[in-house]
Every structure is written in structure tokens, then in C-alpha cells.
Design a protein around this nucleic acid. Sequence first.
DNA 1: AACCGGCGCGCC
DNA 2: AAAGGGCGCGCCGGTT
Length: 588
Amino acid sequence: MSDGFGTLDHVYVVVAGETVLPVGAAGGGPGDGETALPVDDAGGRETTPPVGGAGGRPGDREAGLPVGGAADRSGGLGAGLPVGGPDGLARAVRELEEAEGPRWVWADARETYPPLLERGVRVARCHDLALTEGLLLAYEGRYGEPRSARAAHARLHGLPVPDEQPNAPGTLFAPEPLGAREVAEVLTDQLRRIAALPEPGRFRLLVAAESAGALVAAEMAHEGMPWRRDVHDALLTEMLGPRPVHGMRPARLQALADEVAAAFGHQVNPDSVQQLVKAFKGAGVALKTTRQWELKQIDHPAVAPLLAYKELARLFSAHGWTWADQWVRGGRFRPEYVVGGVVSGRWATHGGGALQIPKVMRRVVMADDGWMLVVADAAQLEPRVLAAMAGDVGLARAAGEIDLYSALAQSFGGERANAKIAMLSAMYGGTSGDASKLLAVMRQRFPKAYQFVEDAAKAGEEGRLVRSWLGRTSPPPSERWKELVSGPEGGRAARDRGRFTRNFVVQGTAAEWALSLLAVLRGRLPEPARLVFFQHDEVMVHCPAELADEVIAAVAGSAAEASRLLFGGTPVRFPMEAVAVKSYADAK
DNA sequence: AACCGGCGCGCC
DNA sequence: AAAGGGCGCGCCGGTT
């Protein structure tokens, strides 16, 4: 109950956005009907017991979803509860939520939840059929097949599978919403497929966390991140000059463009790579690209104004006045989050560029009067995740410290920087500079961690799938890759994919930890605190000032709980220090 | 006019 | 010295 994922008592299916259907008591308290999850019984995937072993039954405390309860009863569906439109639905959901706290089952939270939020209704947990179907399809090596509940239902019955886009061009009619029986059938099928997995407990945790993510994403889009347009405008004006009329460059940008032109002695569009390369060539400077680091090596009077131009031009085009007109309303920035939008399980955004807000803009994010922003990010999350997954005792010991890299330094000639390069190279597949030398040290000192990512890389190079700790599965290699890998450039293609799969297992598990943290934290926040931002390993909560301490404590507790949910009794620590600030810029 | 790949750079 | 994972997005410039 208190673990944030909750115990399932009842399942309610929301059908067609306006019917609530009790599917019946699913039964089962925590662990009920759940056998112990054999962590080292990998059943087709290579895993290692969590470091420390004791209590290490990932997912076993999650008690998130029924194994067969709802499924068994779905054949005996009662009549739906017609609730009469969105207002009636909101009323019904609110009442049932308060009375019973069920897990809501719906085809797609993106469609069902926002209308509820608009009517002030929030729910504690759900099972999102589309997200779950996506996870299952990927696990089954069927990545990319349509994952909507309707598509899942069609596959179940051998019917033509509809396109992913319900209103794709050429589609004359939106499909009929799924009925209660259909939704229940898809749920039953998914629960059956999950139960048949080698690690059902882990996957249930993944499904519960992913579904909770869908709730958080909708809530954050509804709430919005505080964004002071007056501060934003002042910042832009300070850096660029006053807002220009449409289609014009701001004064400061134009002045820099003129400086670049003067340095070359003729007009050059500083936004055009081709023109720049040509202009530098005319000045006797050979360039392959116009990237910052390459420009910085060059001694030419155009370089300084060009670099300044590039920095400001990006600010102007990506987060300038036009951007604010589009994305900021009522003092809130409302991006569209895409849960699981990255194959590794990280979130993406669609529009708004919420995950690329320049650091210089953070001062624009300010708490309302009397409120604070609690900002927290997980320190060195990926190496810690690797230590826990691999069960590498030495690395886990270092990961018991607040600064993991400092703790590793003695293994790398006392150099913290070298420890960091070694870890990053292991996780990203780096080869340049000192990487190979440092990796050799890593192989010797932390053999299990080293072997863990090497195995993942090897799987990728051979075209096999890899999975995160909870079972999120990499996409299979493309047909194009298979052709390429047997050709003359095959080695390159294989290594490229090896780097991808090497990173996938770490990034994917880090995303699972962060998602679990988010889900737990969401359930522990005191009213009226609200999650307003989430960026891979960082969260932001907007709350009344007097609740800040409570929120900070909730963050720390949630981080510990997320670690326990994923890795049981691992000695690896996952520090997540939260600070309360008025402005995002004041965090760290 | 619309589309698209390449580039460059913002974030983690 | 300038590489090694994941993204989104705006701009350029060539193609349809």
C-alpha cells in the first residue's frame, strides 16, 4: 500500500472514455499467489543476483498486478456502469477512487486521463494497455508492431491489425472504441504473457512503473512547470537585444553576423555550414566541420564572433520569444512528454524541447509566491546501476559512497578523472585517448562490471537482443544492418550496434530506477505539492514553502525505495539530494 | 510548396 | 585530442 505501487484489490476498466466497468476483485495482497522470484534463474537471459543477495527479489515487493484474478473473472463481466459523458465519468472515477482505490485499466492514459485531470480527478494507479503491449512486444522480439489496445485485440483474434495512427491520412473513420469485453480480453492476455516470462515479478514492476509514468506525464502536462515570461523576456533582451519584428534577427545577433562578414570581407550567412566552410577556405583555413571545438582551434578574426553568434542564435531559435508564445501560457511551460519515447525507456518530448532547456534559462523557472521548487537529481546513476546489476563487489563498495568516482580514484592511479573516463568508456564503448588503457585497469579491478557490459556489447555485435534489469528489450537489428554487417563495412556496423546494446542495458536500467523513483515519489507527496519536471535522472516538485522539508524527505525516501524495489538488498547507494530553491538556477 | 537528410548543438 | 550512448529541434539546401 505504502510502497507507491500499491496492492491491487479491484480492477476497473474504463471503456470508451465514459463507462466504468468493475471487472471484479482481483484478490491478492502483497505476495499473494506470488512465488519467490528466482533471481539467478535467468531462463534465457543472463543475469546475476543483486549484490548482497539477501532480500534481493526484484519485483517481489511490488505486488502490482494480479496474476490471474481479474483475468479469471473477466468472463463474468457484469453490466458496465454507464456514467453519461465525461462529467459523469469523472464523478464515478472520483467516487470509486476514494472508496476503493482500484487499479484503473484503460487502453491509453493519453486519451483517458487528461479529461479526468481537467475535472480535478486524479487516480493512484493504472494499467496502461498500450504501454504494456509495447513492452511485451519488444520482449517478444516484435518491436515496432502496433501496440494500441485495439491492435492487441485484433492480433488476439487474428483480425487485421489497424494502423498505429487512429486518424492516419486516408482513414475515413476513427475506429470504434474498444468495448468492455475487448479491454478485459487484452488485459487477460497481457497478464498471461507476463506470468509466462522468466522474471514475471520484474516485468510487473516495469509495467506498474511505466503505467505510473503515464499518470505522471499527464499530470505534469496538466500542471506545467512555472515559467516567468517577464524574466524570460528580460533574459532574452539582455542577451540578444529587444524582441525583433517577425523574420528579423535581434540586434545583437545581427551585429555579430556583421562582424563575421567584416572578418571575411564579404557577406556570409553564419547559419550556413556550406557558406562558412567556403569562406574559411577562401581565407586559407581548411575545415571539415564548423563544430565549436574545431573552430576553437583556428586563429581567424571570424571565429570569436561566430562562436558568440552560434550560442545566441540557438537561444533565439530554440527557446526565444516565438517558442514562449507557443509553449508558455498562464505562467506555465507545458511540454508534451512521451513516456517510453526512447527505446531505452527514457522519456522523450514532442514539441517544446523540454529536455533540452539551456542551463542559462534555468533562472526563468521560478516558484510562485510562497512556494518553493524542490529539485533533486540522482548522482552518478548509471555507474551505480551497473554496479548493482553486475553484482560487482568492488564496484558496489565504491558505489556505497556519495562520490563514486572519488572512491574509485585509487584504483586508477589516484586520478578521479581517470576513474570517470574508465566508467564512461565501459558504459558508452569509448575507444579513444586513454580509454583502452583505463579499460584494462577496469577489467582487472572490476571484472564482473566489465564483463557485464562486454557481454551486452557482444550480444549487439552478433545481432542478438539485450534486456534491461526489469526486462525492457532492445529493438532487433534492422534488415539494413544485417546486410551491412556481412559486407565490407561490417565490422564498423557491428561495433556501432555493440555500443548501442552496451549502453542500452545501463541506460535502460537507470531509466527504470528513475521511473520507479518517480512513481513512488508521486504517491508520497503531500497535497498540494506537484511534480512539475522530470528529466532522465532529475525531478522537480513545486510546493508551498512550508512543505519543502517534507518533500525533500520524500525524495530521499523514494530513492531508497526505488533502489529496494529494483535491487533488493544491494549495498549500492543511490544518493538523491534534494534542495529547495526559489529558482531552478539556484539548484546545485 | 512540401519534404527530407545532414549538420550542429542543447540536455542527460 | 576531440571520441563513445540516448534524444529533439531548427536551419540549410537539395529533391520532389
